[in-house]
Amino acid sequence: MFTALMLLSPVAAFAVQTSPPVPTEWWVWEIALFVFSFFLGIIAVIAGVGGGVLFVPIVSSFFPFHIDFVRGAGLLVALSGALSAGSPLLKKGLANLKLALSMALIASISSIAGAMAGLAMPENVVQLSLGATILGISVIMLLSKNSAYPEIAEPDTLSKILHIYGIYYDEQLKKDVSWQIHRTPVGILLFIVIGFMAGMFGLGAGWANVPVFNLVLGAPLRVSVATSIFVLSINDTAAAWVYLHKGAVLPLIAVPSIAGMMIGTKIGARLLTKVHTRVVRKLVITLLAAAGLRALLKGFGI
């Protein structure tokens, strides 16, 4: 897939030919973007990451679109995925609206600030920071160990005031699991940082939301994953509007990406039980690291 993309790229074509490059038709890029997003959707689900975090670094490396539009499309890819996954998670009580609302208010404001800062920065600085961030995310993904059912001895005062606790039916344990959280102020501070980065780079922030909910606040893993989707839908909505107003959203780039990713995600969910998720996760981390390195090199003008 990536070899095919390299061959499609006019820059790559110029590197191997002596005659001037032949511009690729726009519809070829549309189809390539759809097919690429489709495969990305499949591996993203299997690897347990959101599509947005893979989308921005890889598409900005291999497609001819300016990174402004790639970040705009990345936010919409993450947003549409969150919206389509949301309803069943809420009905089952896996996602907790009070937990999400408590974290999202300040995080969405920082997401707006991040989007504004990202669109104001010179392109090479964006590429450099994106590269460094993506490399950091690969390391987090490589090292992070989730805790399925963290033990919370005593909830903190703020979480008591905000009534953040819940109960859900665990399909694996075949019983109801009740939960509460602690370290709420620390969580809110971390969500400010996550929101800023998500807005700046157009990344879905599941890679950061889930560890904060799970390892810092102490919510069960399933609740963390599901609630992360709601925080993401609010933060990405806020940042997406900045990109819309700055003219950084082109339907020609956003729609094939959203459609490909959504179909790929559905197929990925079906394949989930049939493939070795660890192998795919390692592949995704490698891809992320390679894309991060490429973004860094682009930032240095190499």
Partner: peptide
């Protein structure tokens, strides 16, 4: 459902379900 998801969550889920499906059709 009522045991695990309160009325607020069910209200949100119900609107989210049809508005997001409509969004995919529009797109």
């Amino acid at each position: 459902q009522e045991l695990h998801a309160n009325r607020v969550q069910l209200a949100y889920a119900s609107v989210l379900s049809w508005t997001s499906s409509l969004g995919i059709f529009f797109i």
